[in-house]
Nucleic acid binder design. Sequence first.
DNA 1: ATATATACATACACGAATGTTTGTATTCTT
DNA 2: AAGAATACAAACATTCGTGTATGTATATAT
Lengths: 203, 203
Amino acid sequence: MARKTKEEALETREKILDAAIDIFFENGVSASSLNEIALRAGVTRGAVYWHFKNKRDIFDALHERLFKSFMDMLSPRLDHIDADPLAQLRGLQTDLMREVHGNPMKKRALSVFLLKCDYSGDMKDFLIEQEKSKFKSFQIFADYVRRVQEQKLMPAHFPPEVIARMYHCFFSGLLYEYLRFPGTIDFDTHVLPSINAFFSRMA
Amino acid sequence: MARKTKEEALETREKILDAAIDIFFENGVSASSLNEIALRAGVTRGAVYWHFKNKRDIFDALHERLFKSFMDMLSPRLDHIDADPLAQLRGLQTDLMREVHGNPMKKRALSVFLLKCDYSGDMKDFLIEQEKSKFKSFQIFADYVRRVQEQKLMPAHFPPEVIARMYHCFFSGLLYEYLRFPGTIDFDTHVLPSINAFFSRMA
DNA sequence: ATATATACATACACGAATGTTTGTATTCTT
DNA sequence: AAGAATACAAACATTCGTGTATGTATATAT
């Protein structure tokens, strides 16, 4: 085949990434071959190896693309404190879940990172990276809780880190459950009410 | 080599399963070869194929061995209602986490099932099985909540399933966090306090 | 306009894992 | 005590994925 223009090359790169999400989601990361990804994207392995070093490299690119968008959503919504902090937190979590629920591509990508890969072998050091970024988002939330407690808008029976940990566990647990059993747990009748229950008990 | 007695054969079977947990934990399920497992167990692939049909068969056997012990722990502790249900629930969750924390073999096995495998390909129908057993334990808890609400020992602002879902998400989320980042999240200073915080907010 | 770098497709070589088959020393059966 | 079944080890064949090397048509630089 012939050489493409730079824009076209970028398009095929994106095509490969999109195909990778699908294939990873269907087969699991380690069981997915680069050939499958290439075929799904409508190219050959040559194109894949041109744009990416190996499977791990594709994985990194996907992570970059996904977590950026989430951090962009998280940070600006916790840099200030609303009149009702609990409502603010509930709103944030609701919107995050709604974002996942409404965006099939993001949903599949998240599934890949949380359920469709075992972080071992090549991926071991990737887990360390992920730990760092998770720690970052955790710190953002712990800081928020600390400020809220300082302003006496929340009882300070527990240190901010503990509250943050509790919140974080509930949220990630909810996410896991929702992604793991897509048929069983409905968004409107299960996910949203359980968020409301969680926050109504924290008042 | 020579034929072993029946007891010896059972021993090698157990040896293979133990080795499988280790290898699965280190490399992830799909990246683990049957040869590695055999070598770790001190046998050859011949022995593995004698006792098990394939890798999936080993996986099933491990699941059988693990989840039985957890269900045995769960059921009898929720078939009655203590004077203080919240304390009862907190105690159950604490003990379950303590069990995981104190038993390295169980801890590694749980890690394998929750983090070290992607349920796709051969494993897809396995996920369905897991969903069933998870639904079972969920029902046990929802029933418990319902009975507690009927006895007016807990406010009934939310249906039992919602409360159960919330509890379940928090617990599994905590478990995931604890297993995923073994170095970061300490048992005494992070896990236990966050359980206490969770239940103190539910009063 | 020509040279060169680009964006792939195609072909090749290699290792690794799987499932199966065969061999064999014992143990169990009768 | 002798045949049959058992509990493996060892060898084989086959498939599959990876990485790399090569070919090539075209965009881009000069």
